[in-house]
Design a protein around this nucleic acid. Structure first.
Lengths: 105, 105
DNA sequence: CCAATCGGTAAGTTGTAACTTACCGTTCGT
DNA sequence: ACGAACGGTAAGTTACAACTTACCGATTGG
């Protein structure tokens, strides 16, 4: 089915668990198990989400003994932010013209 | 499955067809059939997306003969925008502190 | 070493959202 | 009044993403 393609920023942050992980990592870096404790999902599920976030460049990971610490990647975050902003710019340009026209009526 | 709940802004704009519709309506109001012509999906599919967008307060519709013209609802759009911004604010607060700390190292 | 901790991966399930086709009511022009 | 255009809705399918459990390798401490 899938009409268009590409795991863009919307698809990445479209998942609530992923957003929770991002917010969590924004406060401080965490190991996988720590994240799982704070979320209502299993550790493997967290692992899979982290994979998506890492592929998207949103997080970096670092081995620390048997643990693996994940942290937000500032560059990735701001890139994603920019990507989403583009949608609003495209949408709101042209749109404000319409609003102005209608407010005359 | 679904861990959290609520058709929030992310779920609404998470769908590419819906984003395309919003961008389309941002340029100018359109009838359902017109939208369907510009999109690679059927007219009923468009109708269903419009329902979601209308329930979310993102679009308004107006009967015009046998046709029904949809247009973006400015208030809804800006409300949605604000909702998404809240995520970034929550995320980026606390996060910039971390970035600053790391840039010292 | 051995046991324990930690995390990634494989495999399988399952709910759901995005579509389709088919149908029906409404509006309008002639 | 009839046919055509238009759009909403019902019903069914289907692809997929988000989970789960089970397993396995790697690291570490005693």
């Amino acid at each position: 089915m899938e009409t268009y393609r590409g795991p863009d920023g919307w698809e990445i942050l479209g998942d609530p668990s992923r957003r929770a992980i991002v917010e969590c990592l924004a406060r401080r870096p965490r190991a996988v198990g720590e994240l799982a404790e704070e979320l209502p999902i299993s550790r493997p599920a967290v692992s899979q989400h982290l994979r998506v976030l890492k592929d998207a460049g949103l997080v970096d990971d670092e081995a620390a003994g048997t643990r693996r610490v994940y942290r937000l990647n500032p560059a990735g975050v701001s890139a994603l932010r920019d990507q989403l902003d583009m949608f609003w710019q495209r949408t709101l340009r042209g749109f404000e013209e319409i609003v102005e026209n209608e407010e005359q009526a």
